[in-house]
Design a protein around this nucleic acid. Sequence first.
DNA 1: CGTTGAGTTGACCATCGTCAACAGGAGTGG
DNA 2: CCACTCCTGTTGACGATGGTCAACTCAACG
Lengths: 246, 246
Amino acid sequence: MAALPASIRGTQASCARARGQVDCANCKVRLFSVCGALDSHELCELEALAQQTSFEQKITLFTQDEPAGAVYNVTEGVVRLYKILPDGRRQIIGFALPGDFLGLSMADRYTFSADAIGPVKACRFSRGAFSDLLDEKPHLLRRLHEFATHELSLAQDQMVVLGRRTAEEKVASFLIGLRDRWARISKVSVTVPLPMSRQDIADFLGLTIETVSRTLTRFARERAILVVPEGVRLLDPQRLEQLAAA
Amino acid sequence: MAALPASIRGTQASCARARGQVDCANCKVRLFSVCGALDSHELCELEALAQQTSFEQKITLFTQDEPAGAVYNVTEGVVRLYKILPDGRRQIIGFALPGDFLGLSMADRYTFSADAIGPVKACRFSRGAFSDLLDEKPHLLRRLHEFATHELSLAQDQMVVLGRRTAEEKVASFLIGLRDRWARISKVSVTVPLPMSRQDIADFLGLTIETVSRTLTRFARERAILVVPEGVRLLDPQRLEQLAAA
DNA sequence: CGTTGAGTTGACCATCGTCAACAGGAGTGG
DNA sequence: CCACTCCTGTTGACGATGGTCAACTCAACG
């Protein structure tokens, strides 16, 4: 396959590649993802390792404790990351949005489970191949490290939420936090999409589904939000921001 | 300063260095810390950047949001890492033991505060100099990344504790977790040292000091632990492990 | 039109937080 | 040496936040 004319963005033409493979040069989340650290030549190397994968709603990408064969870069959809206690209690440790990387630790086994909340697309890399690439490309490793420490920072913020906030503050900080994350990937909208269920939100915030429901209802009654089928519209963001910061 | 005879360990002789500086070759925590990734020559480079620092009880190493001038490698003592909400509520996000690294993210500002629980010694590195060294030594970066993802994993475990466990389970998992961390740095002892106050434990577990106290008292009454001045002795570790895993 | 699953709402209750009193050790000063 | 304060930790009584259990609504789907 011959080189194509220079593409729209600053990057060079796309790389030679087989059918059904990834097209990084036209990837909408590239600049927000770990791949953003690579130049056009390196991007071709990465592309050669990548495999486009799709997951239907409720399909599991991987399970806690299972050998980690691959790492993923989410390009579309939302993934729920969680741990389960022996008696069935569940704690959601995060939601991966487009641009997020799964498998930051490059460890032998996954330390949590991940499944698709709606339809999800992700670039899959064999863990060994990706690890080898990291050894060759220190700036990619540096980028991965930045992503890991960003995740760590989010996790520490969430520890504050889980340990020291009331139910009302938890829900408010969840909405504000999610709005800000959507904004970073330019999904600007007055409505914050909530593709996850109430149970998911509850398991993320350390609450029950009833408490989440009651709290959202109260916010709606007090005209702070408007609940719509796909999510919530923030009518009084300042009120929520104050609760989230308090 | 001429090279000294080969030292006791496998490492080469110590490096030329000024008085009052760090002696990495004889550092007891080196192999457990990020420095463990370096060979004897590189260790000398690192040593040249290091500055030995000491902190008395209750002294602050750094404060949340303040510009991050330095990163630290703890060599002695325990450091409390925490975030404070505007109204004074505090969440401790971790305890740094000897061998732990503070400033994994290499970011412009600290995202949490850190202060010495007892007397603390730490190697201080200027952030800029350390960051430059990381650019030269990819395997050091890789090591730092491993430490970061290990921290991330601990944070995620703690999210489960904070979000989904009862007071009794929280205290049990705290004791077991701390015992295992002491064990990794070969402080083998029947007694788990608890240099932090009850208030610190409470703020780590998302409880009140009274609940922590009551729970420890109950464990003691049921002969699961013995409370001693410096910490607790685990009389029935299996009982606690089961609670922590449940 | 019946079934299913997600979400909402209400009544009741338990765990854990709040408030308060008390105990014991360390440091200080008469 | 003892009285005093200060600080940390313990214990008890009570109460509120959020959990539990159950009924109900509503939309999707056959």
